[in-house]
Amino acid sequence: MPRPFLFPTRITPPVLPIIQGIVQVLFDGIAFGMLLFVMSVGLSITLGMMHFANLAHGVFAMLGGYVTVVLMHKAGVPFLETLPAAFVIVAIVSVPLERFVYRRMYSAKELDQVLLTVGIIYMAIAAAAYVWGPEPMAFALPDYLTRYRDIGSFSFSTYGALLLAIGTVITLVIFYGLERTRFGAMIRAAVDDRRVALGVGINVNRVFTITFAVGSGLAGLGGALGINALGLDPSFPIEYLVFFLIVVSIGGGGTVKGALAAALLLGLCDTAGKYYVPQTGAFIIYVVMLLVMLWRPNGLFGRP
C-alpha cells in the first residue's frame, strides 16, 4: 500500500527540527502580528477617515498597559479581567482629546498634525514618568499563561495562543461590524468620501468620535496584552512608533484588511528574520518597509 504522501507517519529526525522551526516561526509570527494588528488598527482607520496622522497612537497603548498594571498591583484584579477595563478606560480618555484638540486639526497640514502629536507624545512621556516613575513596570503573567503546551512534537505558548484568539475575535468583530451593521456602513461611507457622507445626512463628526474611541480602546487593549512581550515604561509611545507607522503605511490608510495583512507580514518577517538570520537584526523589517513603500507608495491595499 502506498504511503500517504502529505501525512508521513513518522518524520525522520533531521527533518523534524526544520519543520518544528517553521511551525514555531509561523505560530509566534502570527501571534505577534495579531498583537500589532490590535494595537494599530485604530490608527489605520483614523488615518483613512480623517487623514489625520496621529503619531500619538502609542500613548493610548501605553495607557492601556498602565491601567492593567495598576489594577493588578493596587486592586488585585486578575490579568484577564483587567483587559476590558484597559479597553474602556482608554476609549473614554480618548474622547475629550479628539473633541477638543484633534478635531481642530483635521484640515491642517500633515506636518502640523505630526508636530502636534509629537508634542502630545512628549507630554505623555513626562506625565507617565511623573505618575508611575521612569522605571519599567514590574509585570508577571499569571502562571497558566506562561506554560507551553505540547501538541505532538510541537510546543506552543499559551500566551501566544491567547494573542491569536483575541486577535481573531477582534478581527471578526471588526469585519462583521464594518460590513454588516448600519454604523459600519456609515464608517465606510465616511472613509470613502467625507463630503458626500455629510451630504447624505451622516453625522460624520459623531461617527468619527466613536470610531476614534474604539480604535484608541483597541490600542489600549493591545498595550495591556503586549506588556509581557513589549515591556512597559514611559517611553513606550516612541519606542514602538515605527512599528505602528509601518503597519499603517504598508497596509494603506483606512483599510482593515490592509492593516491585518501588514501586521501579519511584519510579525512574520520579524520573527522569521530573528530565527533564521539573527545577525541582520532590525534590518529586515526596515528593508521590507522601504521596498513596499517604493513599490506601492499608498500601501498594499491603499487607494491612490
Binding site: S157, V242, P278
Partner: peptide, 20 residues
Amino acid sequence: SVRIPVSNPDFTPYVQRVKQ
C-alpha cells in the same frame, strides 16, 4: 552566539535558537 537588536520587541525566536 546571537546578537539581539536594541529595539527588539520579541525574544522568543532567539531563545528558541538557544534551545536548539
